[in-house]
Computed example of a mutant assay.
Amino acid sequence: MRYDLVIFDNDGVLVDSEPISNTILADCLTELGHPTTYEDSIRDYMGSAMHRIHELVLERTGQRLPADFDDAFHARVFAAFERGLEPVPGVTEVLEKLAADEVPYCVASSGSHERIRVGHRKTGLDRWFGDDIVFSAQDVGRGKPAPDLFLYAAERMGVSPERCVVVEDSRLGVEAARAAGMDVYGFTAMTPAGRLPRANGYFTSMGQLAELLM
């Protein structure tokens, strides 16, 4: 293994949550008078921390989202997770391989700690991720595309940035990883490679990831 730490994004990389959450986000914004399609949500908000959604809506419309927007949105997302969230196909095998090879890994997500935990419990991935290797945008001042979250994860894991590799499926995440001085591989199951510029490589299924990491 050529890296000392593998940093996973969560939504869309570990848990297959992006179709669920972006459908609900588009619905929530549309209901509030900000017409948004599923495709709009994927393009504009995928990979964003909640504060960035608020900032973009305010910038574009001059209107602030309601104070309870985050709670109402997450209540709907968590209920949908309980009904149908699944792990990304093949990710368990990747985690088994890393554990067998004794390669450290962690998750660094734009989502809240609660969102990460709800998803991991539902999909059974909680057995692979203890609290000490779960990092959220809540832990830092700025979410992706700022490098803060990835740098924080590397520091907490005791690994220098140049020895880390990030696994991402969003443009914001790829930008954040490169800004942190880390290699990054783009997962193109949902996001075309053209929307993930500057990634060091691309893969369409988790079965291909091990080869890239080697």
Rank of each mutant, 00 (worst) to 15 (best):
V167W: 01
D169C: 00
V165P: 02
A179F: 04
V91L: 09
F78D: 15
H120S: 11
A193K: 02
P89I: 10
D126K: 04
V91Q: 04
V77F: 14
V77S: 13
F78V: 09
A137I: 00
F187A: 05
T188K: 11
V103R: 02
L98T: 08
V174A: 01
G173D: 02
F150H: 12
I116G: 12
V107R: 13
T191Q: 04
V107I: 11
V91S: 09
D169I: 00
C164W: 06
R83E: 14
A75R: 15
P89C: 12
R115S: 14
P147L: 10
W128P: 04
F78E: 15
R64S: 15
E96S: 10
A137N: 14
F81S: 10
R178W: 01
S160Y: 04
G111H: 09
R195L: 11
A72Y: 14
T92V: 11
P145I: 09
L151Y: 08
E102M: 10
S109I: 03
V166W: 00
G158Q: 08
A153I: 05
R195F: 04
V159D: 10
H74G: 13
V174S: 05
D68A: 15
F135N: 06
V91G: 03
T92D: 09
P147F: 06
K97A: 14
Y185H: 12
V77T: 14
Q63H: 14
V140Y: 05
D169Y: 00
V166I: 13
A100V: 03
A67C: 08
P145Y: 12
D183S: 10
V77Y: 13
G124H: 02
